[in-house]
Design a binder for these strands. Sequence first.
DNA 1: GTCTATAATTCGATAGAC
DNA 2: GTCTATCGAATTATAGAC
Lengths: 186, 186
Amino acid sequence: MAGETRGGQTKAAILRAARERFAAQGYERTTIRGVAADAGIDPSMVMRYFGSKERLFDAALAVDLRLPDLAGVPVGELAQVLVRHFVERWEGDPADDALLVLLRSAVTNEAAAARMREVFATQVAPALAAVLGPERAARAGGLVATQLLGLALTRYLLRLPPVAELSAEAVVAALTPSLEATLLST
Amino acid sequence: MAGETRGGQTKAAILRAARERFAAQGYERTTIRGVAADAGIDPSMVMRYFGSKERLFDAALAVDLRLPDLAGVPVGELAQVLVRHFVERWEGDPADDALLVLLRSAVTNEAAAARMREVFATQVAPALAAVLGPERAARAGGLVATQLLGLALTRYLLRLPPVAELSAEAVVAALTPSLEATLLST
DNA sequence: GTCTATAATTCGATAGAC
DNA sequence: GTCTATCGAATTATAGAC
């Protein structure tokens, strides 16, 4: 009982450390030893709880975009709502957002890339379908991904100065017109 | 002399193999052994010619975007010219384009990320300055990077189906309106 | 200029004591 | 449930023969 409780805490600590490491370094450069050190436990505990590095990665990547219901949103406001939603989620601690964790690894890891495709197919496209209808939703989802993941890439991962230095509000203002153009021309 | 000639060919073969590996797997997963195998030579030759994995990486990353002179281009056509330029370069063999090689590694490797920042600061921003003026160029360059790297990311690296399945012409048509909105609102 | 052999690390994973 | 000890594999890098 005391053991099980501590076990749960240990497991949570491992997951938290794993997300940070995967977010900061991607899959390949993240080591079980490093995760264990951050969590303050022995590396073998990671194996005990998760079996392998790959299953730990899998467990660290439960991505829920928590997209709001877009059904009532006018098409004209859709772009701003979407940009604001993602920027606000990312501004706190980027290393804490599962989508950014996933992005960092998805570029060189096929399992992570597959998960990314799944996230957009099962969360973004359906949410857009409520406004645009099912036919346009898939294509629009792809173009939304291009712009929002492009933003995540340049601002949080590559940190291109002109993009990284903008305030959160300025980012929303800068991205909204282009995403609007995309959604209206789709 | 015969030796030097062969040496030059070997060096070129190593560079070609290195670019392919770095493009396909990123920095961390690319091994000197793998590069040497592709080039048909011994791993130690790679060390002899380039000294270390990091310097080989550096040598493989000479990026020249070959941007055309934009001075005569009307602002209204700028977006289409830019999108078409990059898409045409990428469509042949994505693994052959230095910018995509760089992108794959820049997400987890700080040296590559720095190189990416340098490429946009020294090539994209100056080219845009010819049309938009120097004040708007830096910011515009960042937003152009967001969209074009976003495209490279979703189409060639993540291969999100809705984006990956478009024809090259459809990509140009889909991206132009949003990039146009960005450039006009900047 | 090219290759063999190997040093020195580092990592994921396993076995087993407590 | 937690840790010690270690295996086996893979990697970068070096030394030196030819």
